[in-house]
Design a protein around this nucleic acid. Sequence first.
DNA 1: TCAAAAGTGTTCAAGTTACACCCATGT
DNA 2: ACATGGGTGTAACTTGAACACTTTTGA
Lengths: 231, 231
Amino acid sequence: MSVVHTYSDNEKILVSIDCIIFGFDQNQLNLLLFKRKIDPFKGEWSLVGSFVNPEEDVQNAAVRVLQEYTGIDEIFMEPLAWYGDVDRDPGGRVISMAYYSLVRIDESKVIKADSYQAKWFAIDEIPPLILDHDQMVQDALDKLRRKARYEPIGFELLPEKFTLPHLKRFYDAIYQKDLDRRNFRKKIISMGILTKLDEKDKSTSKKGAYLYQFDADKYEELRSKGFNFVI
Amino acid sequence: MSVVHTYSDNEKILVSIDCIIFGFDQNQLNLLLFKRKIDPFKGEWSLVGSFVNPEEDVQNAAVRVLQEYTGIDEIFMEPLAWYGDVDRDPGGRVISMAYYSLVRIDESKVIKADSYQAKWFAIDEIPPLILDHDQMVQDALDKLRRKARYEPIGFELLPEKFTLPHLKRFYDAIYQKDLDRRNFRKKIISMGILTKLDEKDKSTSKKGAYLYQFDADKYEELRSKGFNFVI
DNA sequence: TCAAAAGTGTTCAAGTTACACCCATGT
DNA sequence: ACATGGGTGTAACTTGAACACTTTTGA
């Protein structure tokens, strides 16, 4: 009994990955969508995805797709969920694994928007998507909201240098409410994971707001001592 | 261009599910393991699993396996993660999706322990497992610990009727520390999701401890009003 | 000079932690 | 009668929520 043939009685299935790509501009959470290039549903709005090759790790398929479509090398990406119902795709039996990823819109200019007909959509203006992609987006949003509370992943969506009002607008968007400016400041500053810079950003006010940077090393150091990020 | 043949250029892959089955006795978190019946690694300790049939939903494959091996119909089960590296299984390219599930040990007597050589292992006495099953167990443990804090899933592991000391022992085991008896009581009782019964359980003390039941309806009602379970 | 956003401190309520003694009962 | 685990209350502390005024500067 050869090992190689051990599993040969079992039937194989098509496997794909889909990527939910979030961005954040000054006020709004955004989602990157593409016009589908293959049938069925050719020309309709869709997440980006790809079939998984038998010779590549599932995760590599996602990295490959994200690089190809956003042009970004080091992209924040996490597994979300799989979608495995028999009839989820009228094109055939396909099990899809979804990754959500967070990108800085300002770094992703390299997206081949023209050739792929890619477009950023504000989160409350997303058009109907193919298959169960609406569900995937909803699941990704839920996960992002939950995760943003307990881990400093919001910084993945902001520019390297950001102002506290900008950061607050991110949490306002995530929570769909207006946090108290003073309490927010107090809390985030007291964590000691931000570095205040001497520069100001004047793009949203005359007075200008100080720029800050997220200190990932400091965060790791604190975390190893039991610190928990919570907003 | 027929829809059915749209995806036919792409290669299929073997897909399986694996189940991490947790139980809890009086003091210990336990894991149900089985001796593997097929090569490679025949006879070694393993999670239960199965290949996914092209005609069944992924989730149904997990339900099928859990029913078959534990004899329990309505089992608590949630998706955990997928494991998709090319070389994770020397028997062939197999992508596995793992579900973790919580069972009441007292309800699972029907497990066909003899024919399957199944055995409950205390969580700190788990033997080496095949493939990446050790990793799966670790991931499931992490998820269970995180989840047990914010959702009342601990009750899935306890008998229908349980004492507060018993419940506390569950959280002690999860957190690996000794919570304060009085504060624990105060907190869990004040949530208003437990029903106190008139019976006592004397199996662990002479005085006996009152039995309680989890009130799922009440919990749902409170949750819809914004209540958050946190221990 | 004024409109618009940025920055700052204090008070109060609520929740969490720490902690010590009595109760019931089987042996 | 005593050892063992079960049950209860209170005070100190920490954390989160609410809230108003001053500063800067471009137009």
